[in-house]
C-alpha cells in the first residue's frame, strides 16, 4: 500500500442496488485534522457512501482506503468509529453497560475512558438507567458515546445530532472540533444546513454523485449567494422554487 497523507481515500466508488445507482463514481481524499460534511437530501447516497468507505458494504466498482489500507478490512475497524443513523443500542442494558459492551468489542478500554465519554455526552448521572427508558435525544447521545469510547482516529457520523437539543448540539460540535484538532478525520453526514457551516469542507451529494465540494465560503461564493441552502440548489441545477432539500429522491 502506498503511503499517503490522506486518511480516507476513494477512487471511482460505485454501488448499485439492482438498477439504482446509490453511489455513482465518487472520488475522495480526506485529510486528518479536518471535519468533512456530507450534505444532501434523503436518499442521495450519503449513508451508502459511508458504509462503502467504512468497509461495511462492498463496492460494485472502485475502491476505498483508510490509512492506506484497502477496505473492507477487519483490523482497520478498530480504528474507525461509526455512528449509524438509527441508534443501535441494547434496550435492557444500562447506559454504562451499553458503552462498556462496545468498548470491550473494540479491545481493552479503561473504565476511565468509559466514564469520560459518558460525562462528555452528559449521561454521567444516567449511567444506571436502562437504555429503553431514555428520551430520543439521550439515546442519540448514548449512541455517540458508544462510537467515541475507543478514541478512533477515523470517525463516520451519520446524522449525529438528529433529536439533540440546540445547546447540546453546540457542545457536540465543540467536541468534534477538539477531536479534529487532535488529529482525527471526521466525516459527518447531514441534511441540516446550519451544521454544514461548522465543517472545514463540504461535499454536496445528489443522486449518488458529488455535485460540488469546497469550504462553506467557497461554495457560497461560487453560487453567488450568502446561504448554503441556496448554494446547494444552485449546484443541483434547481431554482429557488426547487424542491426542498429534505424531500425524498423521486
Amino acid at each position: 500500500m502506498s503511503a499517503s497523507a490522506a486518511a480516507i481515500e476513494a477512487e471511482g466508488l460505485h454501488k448499485t442496488f439492482g438498477s439504482i445507482h446509490a453511489v455513482d463514481g465518487i472520488d475522495l481524499a480526506l485529510q486528518p485534522n479536518r471535519v468533512y460534511g456530507l450534505l444532501g437530501p434523503n436518499g442521495s447516497g450519503k449513508t451508502t457512501l459511508i458504509r462503502l468507505i467504512a468497509g461495511l458494504a462492498r463496492a460494485t466498482a472502485g475502491e476505498a482506503r483508510i490509512l492506506g489500507t484497502r477496505m473492507p478490512s477487519r483490523p482497520m475497524l478498530r480504528r474507525i468509529g461509526y455512528m449509524p443513523q438509527a441508534e443501535a443500542l441494547y434496550p435492557e442494558l444500562s447506559v454504562r453497560e451499553n458503552v462498556a459492551f462496545f468498548a470491550r468489542l473494540e479491545g481493552a478500554v479503561s473504565n476511565d475512558a468509559i466514564d469520560r465519554v459518558l460525562e462528555l455526552v452528559e449521561l454521567g448521572d444516567r449511567r444506571g438507567t436502562p437504555a429503553m427508558h431514555l428520551s430520543g435525544g439521550m439515546r442519540r447521545r448514548l449512541s455517540l458515546a458508544c462510537t467515541l469510547v475507543h478514541e478512533p482516529p477515523i470517525l463516520f457520523l451519520d446524522e449525529p445530532t438528529v433529536g439533540v437539543d440546540p445547546a447540546l448540539r453546540v457542545q457536540f460540535w465543540a467536541h468534534f472540533r477538539r477531536l479534529a484538532a487532535a488529529g482525527t478525520t471526521i466525516l459527518v453526514a447531514s441534511h441540516v444546513m446550519d451544521e454544514a457551516d461548522r465543517c472545514d469542507e463540504l461535499l454536496f451529494v445528489r443522486s449518488g454523485k458529488v455535485i460540488a465540494r469546497g469550504t462553506p465560503t467557497e461554495l457560497r461564493q461560487g453560487a453567488g449567494t450568502t446561504d448554503l441552502e441556496a448554494a446547494f440548489l444552485h449546484y443541483a441545477g434547481l431554482d429557488a422554487e426547487g424542491r426542498p432539500l429534505v424531500a425524498s429522491e423521486p
Binding site: 461495511l56 477487519r74 475497524l77 449509524p84 438509527a86 443501535a88
Partner: peptide, 14 residues
C-alpha cells in the same frame, strides 16, 4: 432487526 448486529459488524468482532 434492531440494527445492533449491523453496529457490531462495525467493530473488530468476528
Amino acid at each position: 432487526v434492531g440494527g445492533t448486529l449491523d453496529r457490531l459488524l462495525a467493530t473488530p468482532v468476528t
